[in-house]
Design a protein around this nucleic acid. Structure first.
Lengths: 337, 337
DNA sequence: CTTGGCACTCAGAGGAGAAGAGTGCCAGAT
DNA sequence: ATCTGGCACTCTTCTCCTCTGAGTGCCAAG
C-alpha cells in the first residue's frame, strides 16, 4: 500500500518539518535529502500520502505538514529511539546521584528532563499503591496530639497529625507502635487494610479508642487518599513552541492534577514508552501537543511515571531517548538508596 | 507641585487604563469621569503629568498610559486597599479551613490567591528560620539507618535519613532522643546550634559517635540548608495578560526559586504589604510585571511571605485587598492548628 | 486659569498589485 | 509502468499606497 519510497518521503517530511517548522514542498525535499528522483515524482507520492491522511496542506499553495496519523506512522515504523551521547549520560548520572532525598530526586529529575528535551517535563511521585511499608512511627507531639509517620521502601515519607481527644499514656503508644510495626513491616500498602482488619480486637480495651483513631487516619492517608503527587518543570519551553492560540489552554491543563495523571496515562505496557500524539490525548486543550511518557521505578517494578509534553511537531526519536534514559537512571537511584 | 485635580486625572487614567487596556485620551476621560472641566484643561494637566514622568504616550497621536512612576504614586497616595466582599471572605475561610495538613494549606492558598486575583500566585512555605522546635524524633528504620524527624510550631515536618555506619543500641537512641527533646523543646531554630554546642560532652563516651553524626545532620538540615520552598499557581493567567513578548522571560523567571525568593522580597516592613512595580523588580525578565506581596504567619509573627505577580497594568486596590485577606486567614489557620 | 477652535501628526485599517512558492496534470522519455 | 520536465494555475504573503480618525499642542479669547 505504501512502498518504501513513499515511507522515505514521509520520514523526510516529518524530519524537515520538525527542524524548520515550515510546511515542506517537493523541491526543498529533493534538495535536502538525496532521494534520487525528481520533484514531480515526489509530488505524486505526496498526493498519495495526502489521500491516505498522513500529510496535509495548510492551504492550497503551501507545502505539506504531517498529520497526527503521519506522526503516528513515523513513530511506530519509521524512526528509532535515539540513544543519548556518552556525555549526556554522564551528566544525568552525576546530576541525579547528588540528590539527597526523594523530593530532591524528583525535582532534579523534572529539571533534567525539561532541559534535556527543551520541553515541559512531568514527573509523578513514586506511587504509594505499589510501595511497601518500611517503618511506622507514632510520636506524641503535644497533649492529645500524635504524629503518625509512615516510611515506604520507595523513600517516600507520609505524615499525618492525629487528634486523640483524650490523654494517652506513653505505654499505650509504645504498645500500638510495636503492634503496627510487627503487622505492617514489609507489607504492601494495598494489603494494609487486610493486615489491620482485626487490630481493635488485639489491643487492651483501654487502648481501643486510640487504636481506632490511629487506624482510621492510617487507612485514610495511605489507601483512600492515594493522592498522586505530580510536579512539572520547564513550562517556559512552551512559550518557545509557539502554540500561540492554545497556549493558555495548555497552561490550564497543566495545572490540573487530574489531567496530568491521565496524560501520563495508565500504561498499556507498564514499563514501555507511551507516545500520545495530538488528538490521541485525552484532553481538549492538548490537541496540538504530544506526550512521551514511561514508567520508572526501583528495579523492574514500575512505581510511577514520568514524561514530557511538547508540540506534536517535536523531535520524537530524541525525546524518546531522553525520557527512556532519565527513567532508567532515576530507577537506579531509587533502587540504590 | 501637583494640585488635586492633576492627581484626580492621574487616578482616572490609571483606573481607565487598567480596565480598558487601552491608552486613554482627554476626551474619553471627561466623558467617563465627571471632572467638571473641559478636555482642553485635562490636556494641559496631562502635559504636566507627562513632563514629570507619571504618564507617557506610546506614540504621538495616542492617549496616555501610566508609567511605573505613575503607578507608584497611584498606589502610594491615590488608592485605598479594597476590602473583599463578605461572600469572598466566607469562601476563603471555608476553603482554607478544610485543609488537613501544611502541604494542603499551602496548596489551597496558592490556588485561592490565583483564582481571586486572576493572576499568578506565589506562596513561600513557612520558613524554618523563624520557627521553634515542637518535637524531635529519632527512629531506627533499618540496621545502621535512622530517621530524624523534626516538627516545628508552624506545622512543618522536616525529615532526614542518617547512616550511622555502626550498630546502635536502642537505649542509646532513646537516650539521645530524650536529651534532644529536653534541650530543644520550644527552642528557636536559629538558636539550635548554641543549644547543642556542648552535646557531645553530655553523652557517655560510647554514644559520642552517634551523637556527633546526628548533630551534624540536624544542623545541616535545619540551619545551613534553610532551603526556602516556594510554590506557584495560576500560571495560565499569564496567557490572559498578553505580555506577549516577555511571556517567555516571565515563565523562565518563575521557574527559578532564587528569583522567586527575591521577588517576594526581604520585606522592609515585615508584615505589611509590599508592592513592586515594573522596573522596581530585581529581575530582568519582569520589567513589565508587578508584585504584590506580604508576610504571613501564625499570630503576628511573620514566618513567610506570599503574593501575586501580574502585569504592571493590574488592579492594585483589589489585588492588595485579596493578598492581605488571604494572608490573614492563612495566619489564623496556622495559629489554630 | 479655563475654554473652544484649529492645524498637525501618526498608527492602523483597507485595498491593489507583484512576487513567489508550490501544486496538479499532461505528454513524452526511459 | 514509472518517471520526468514543462506549464498553467492557485493562493498566501509582502509591500506600497491612501485614507481615516483619534488625539495632541498651541493660541487667542473668555
Amino acid at each position: 500500500m505504501l512502498d518504501d519510497r513513499k515511507l522515505a518521503v514521509l520520514r523526510a517530511i516529518v524530519e524537515d518539518y520538525v527542524s524548520t517548522h515550515e510546511p515542506v514542498g517537493s523541491k526543498t525535499l529533493v534538495d535536502r535529502h538525496n532521494l534520487g528522483v525528481s520533484p514531480a515524482t515526489i509530488r505524486n507520492d505526496m498526493a498519495v500520502l495526502e489521500e491516505q491522511g498522513y500529510i496535509a496542506q495548510p492551504h492550497t499553495s503551501a507545502g505539506r505538514v504531517p498529520t497526527d496519523k503521519g506522526y503516528r506512522l513515523f513513530v511506530d515504523r519509521l524512526s528509532t529511539i535515539k540513544p543519548l551521547s556518552a556525555a549526556e549520560r554522564r551528566a544525568i548520572e552525576t546530576f541525579l546521584a547528588n540528590a539527597y532525598d526523594l523530593d530532591d530526586v524528583v525535582s532534579r529529575t523534572v529539571r533534567l528532563l525539561a532541559q534535556l528535551t527543551r520541553q515541559v517535563a512531568v514527573v509523578q511521585y513514586p506511587s504509594l499503591t505499589r510501595s511497601s511499608v518500611r517503618h511506622v512511627e507514632l510520636v506524641p507531639i503535644a497533649a492529645q496530639r500524635l504524629l503518625l509517620v509512615v516510611i515506604t521502601n520507595t523513600g517516600r515519607v507520609e505524615q499525618r497529625a492525629i487528634e486523640t481527644h483524650e490523654d494517652v499514656s506513653d505505654e499505650a503508644i509504645a504498645h500500638l507502635r510495636a503492634l503496627l510495626n510487627a503487622r505492617l513491616d514489609g507489607c504492601w500498602l494495598t494489603d494494609v487494610p487486610d493486615a489491620l482488619a482485626d487490630l481493635p480486637e488485639q489491643v487492651p480495651v483501654g487502648e481501643r479508642p486510640l487504636a481506632a483513631t490511629v487506624l482510621s487516619v492510617l487507612l485514610e492517608s495511605l489507601v483512600e487518599k492515594h493522592e498522586e503527587k505530580i510536579i512539572i518543570g520547564g513550562a517556559a519551553n512552551l512559550a518557545r513552541a509557539d502554540l500561540s492560540q492554545s497556549l493558555r489552554d495548555v497552561l490550564e491543563a497543566l495545572e490540573e492534577q487530574v489531567v496530568l495523571m491521565r496524560l501520563l496515562g495508565e500504561a498499556e505496557n507498564p514499563s514501555g514508552l507511551t507516545v500520545r500524539i495530538g488528538t490521541e490525548n485525552p484532553h481538549e486543550g492538548l490537541r496540538t501537543t504530544s506526550v512521551v511518557a514511561t514508567g520508572y521505578g526501583a528495579g523492574d517494578q514500575a512505581v510511577a511515571r514520568l514524561g514530557v509534553l511538547g508540540p506534536t511537531r517535536m523531535d520524537y526519536p530524541g525525546t524518546m531517548g531522553a525520557v527512556r534514559a532519565v527513567a532508567r537512571y532515576v530507577g537506579q537511584i531509587l533502587a540504590g538508596s
